[in-house]
Design a protein around this nucleic acid. Sequence first.
DNA 1: TATAAATAATACCTAAAGGTATCATATATG
DNA 2: CATATATGATACCTTTAGGTATTATTTATA
Lengths: 143, 143
Amino acid sequence: MIFNRTTEYAFRIMSFLASDKEKLHNTSDIFDALHIPFRYLRKQMTVLTKTGLVVSIQGKYGGYMLAKKEKDITLWDIVIAMHDKLFETNCFFGYEKCALSQHCMMHSRWAGVKEMIENILKTTTLEDFKKENMHDLIKMSDQ
Amino acid sequence: MIFNRTTEYAFRIMSFLASDKEKLHNTSDIFDALHIPFRYLRKQMTVLTKTGLVVSIQGKYGGYMLAKKEKDITLWDIVIAMHDKLFETNCFFGYEKCALSQHCMMHSRWAGVKEMIENILKTTTLEDFKKENMHDLIKMSDQ
DNA sequence: TATAAATAATACCTAAAGGTATCATATATG
DNA sequence: CATATATGATACCTTTAGGTATTATTTATA
């Protein structure tokens, strides 16, 4: 598990919302599709709302939808919104100062890993997760 | 922090032991060099001993040394010994079944990341962390 | 053989992530 | 305007990783 569980949940939720942008999805819809623990999902939806990634409509027939177009939301945006600590330190050994002065043997190799991950996250948008692809994925996890 | 803290500690400890294989290092030596919380370090040294990565000598003037030659201990061995959950799931979204049936949009890209990390860990041995390099690194983190 | 100095074993404590429960607030519609 | 059904806020519970404390065991050597 490279990302923490909450970040993975956010990926799933945002991808699901992207799969059918027109409709407003309430928590039960999302729960039925993704089976994230219901009350935790409720809480996380308000977090996603506060970060500005989704827009909520309160009251009867309310729900959630993406705040921006799919192509304008990257996976990187989601990681940042979830405050995932993955990108907190740069040093392979977790040394704070490693990046600032002389580099250790691992440094360049590890920098390559982080760069690759960052690059994937920054260039992948929710546009890449629309329709069939997402539904297939959800069905699979359900088996 | 891609690896958990305990795994990072293990990387530091094993690298330190590799930096001067002849001498037997006791917990105080390792603590003076790495400043891992002393009592936690004590505990972790016995874990490393039980996994077979290090050999301990009990009694007065006892301590720890690598169980094998530096070139025969990879970073991968250390990750496995620490039961790091990094490589537990393969799916970007954390879906258990993803790898087994149809693959999601992220799958090949993410498989590339994991493969790159695994490759680095499996091909880097403690031989790469000997002498000056390690001492410099430790000094840096101390500032 | 007594002692000092090391590791081993075990139990407990703490902080953070993940998850649950309850009550408050918003709003469409009869 | 009452009600049903949605989200918002808040407090609390649980699990796990990380860290601490205490006692037991080992062993070199005076």
